[in-house]
């Protein structure tokens, strides 16, 4: 039995210690916004926040995550849309959208460490997030737009 807190709600789950957080969220708790893409830290579709940091949930074992605070896309904006989400809508980033929850959480984390990223910064941080539909350029544009929103410019 493990305790985890997801989006402020405590849950108790009965799984083996090795089970990745991704599958605890998806199959045990029914929280399906983190997506399964590769299972080996190659795509970023499963990205969630663990104690505020962007983490590949397919690589986070339950035993290591217990007691930590998990945030999924549903709660990144504290009841509103996060400025990154707003920028994603304004620039119509998604195609299929399957990668996008992971992209957004990664972008939020990027902007927390580098509030005004250059294209090179964005390429560096976001290249771990695969988009098979090829929305990369729109992601770059949306991140710049979100940086402006957050900075109040």
């Amino acid at each position: 039995m493990f305790d985890i807190t997801v989006n402020g709600v405590r849950h108790r789950v009965d799984v083996v210690p090795e089970m990745p957080l991704l599958w605890v969220l998806r199959d045990e708790l029914g929280i399906t916004s983190p997506k399964y893409g590769c299972g080996i830290a190659q795509c970023g579709a499963c990205t969630v926040q663990v104690d505020g940091a962007a983490v590949r949930s397919c690589q986070a074992r339950m035993a290591d995550i217990a007691g930590k605070a998990i945030t999924t896309i549903e709660a990144v904006g504290n009841g509103k849309l996060h400025p990154v989400q707003e920028a994603w809508i304004e620039h119509q980033v998604p195609q299929c959208g399957y990668c996008q929850t992971g992209q957004i959480i990664q972008a939020i984390s990027l902007l927390e460490t580098i509030p005004n990223p250059t294209d090179e910064d964005i390429n560096e941080v976001m290249s771990g997030n695969l988009c098979r539909c090829g929305t990369y350029e729109r992601i770059r544009v949306a991140i710049h737009a979100a940086a402006k929103k957050i900075g109040g410019i």
Partner: peptide, 9 residues
């Protein structure tokens, strides 16, 4: 479908 894909719904 943009909003629901951005909110995770």
């Amino acid at each position: 479908d943009i909003r629901s894909k951005v909110t995770g719904e």
